[in-house]
């Protein structure tokens, strides 16, 4: 069973929901696929058991074989390879690793070498809980490859929670690909509603099953609840905003350990989505 937790807008509480739900369950694996700005690890204490690099390839030109014909440069859609007077320039950070330049090279002058674009860190939280997160190196353009590696490394887990990147771009699509159920974390403001609609559009186009948790439900207005009712989207739970919660979160603590209210909310969400098999 794979459950993705996502939100159109950032800051709605997606990570809070992910780490607390994960901590509430008796057995689960969590991956944080928000590789640009991973935060789940700030709340989860555990031993790092493994670290692995994620690599992409970029071309290396053998100057002895190159005849400066320029075919690689003409083919490259990303302007990552440019033959100059006495050498061929390769801009590693522009390269998408499509393999095209080597294909079109008439003298077989191009081979590929690896470049690390980020890391995946494995943490054992307790004996039934594994947690993985990815971290994209600053200055790299895309984290999709790290997300795909995270998903691949955990494809056989019995219960997998996926903390997804915010928004509706290609990273989000990569993160929720193959999920059995998606939980949207939203907030009842005009911004929150607008961003959630984009997520709903994405999930419907992808034929995903999903429900919504409205966080900070006592702020803003009722428009989001009306929208959910009109669209017949399941409202999984409402969670109130509380200054007390904000200061617990600010210090990187888990809300379920400090608030019965919050713990009950996690229990309800878990039961609605998973049944009682994974109850604490």
């Amino acid at each position: 069973m794979k459950i993705a937790i996502l939100s159109g807008k950032g800051g709605t509480g997606k990570t809070t929901l992910s780490v607390n739900l994960f901590s509430y369950l008796n057995k689960a694996t969590l991956i944080d696929t928000d590789v640009e700005e991973p935060n789940s690890h700030l709340f989860l204490k555990g031993e790092t058991i493994k670290e692995e690099g994620v690599f992409k390839k970029y071309p290396l030109v053998n100057d002895d074989l190159c005849n400066y014909c320029g075919k690689c440069s003409d083919f490259c859609n990303f302007n990552a390879i440019i033959p100059a007077k006495k050498k061929v320039l390769v801009f590693q950070d522009l390269c998408h690793d499509c393999g095209g330049c080597a294909l079109v090279c008439p003298t077989d002058a191009i081979s590929y070498i690896d470049k690390e674009i980020g890391k995946i860190i494995y943490k054992q939280i307790d004996k039934n809980k594994l947690f993985l997160y990815g971290n994209l190196t600053v200055g790299e353009i895309s984290g999709v490859k790290i997300i795909e590696t995270l998903k691949k490394s955990t494809q056989n887990e019995e219960l997998l929670l996926i903390d997804s990147p915010p928004g509706t771009s290609c990273s989000t699509v990569a993160a929720i690909d193959g999920a059995d159920y998606c939980i949207i974390c939203a907030e009842p403001t005009p911004f929150g509603l607008s961003d959630m609609k984009m997520v709903v559009e994405l999930l419907r186009a992808d034929n995903q099953n999903f429900g919504v948790v409205v966080n900070k439900s006592n702020l803003g207005n009722d428009d989001i609840f009306k929208y959910l009712e009109n669209e017949k989207i399941e409202l999984l739970e409402r969670i109130k905003f509380d200054r007390e919660f904000a200061s617990i979160l600010a210090d990187g603590k888990l809300l379920i350990n400090h608030s019965e209210y919050f713990k009950n909310k996690m229990a309800n969400i878990a039961r609605k989505v998973l049944g009682d098999k994974y109850d604490q």
Binding site: S73, N77, F78, N79, A80, I82, A84, F91, L94
Partner: peptide, 14 residues
Amino acid sequence: AGSGAGGKAVKILG
């Protein structure tokens, strides 16, 4: 160009 306009412009001039 979506990316790498700098290199491409130089190639044109070169």
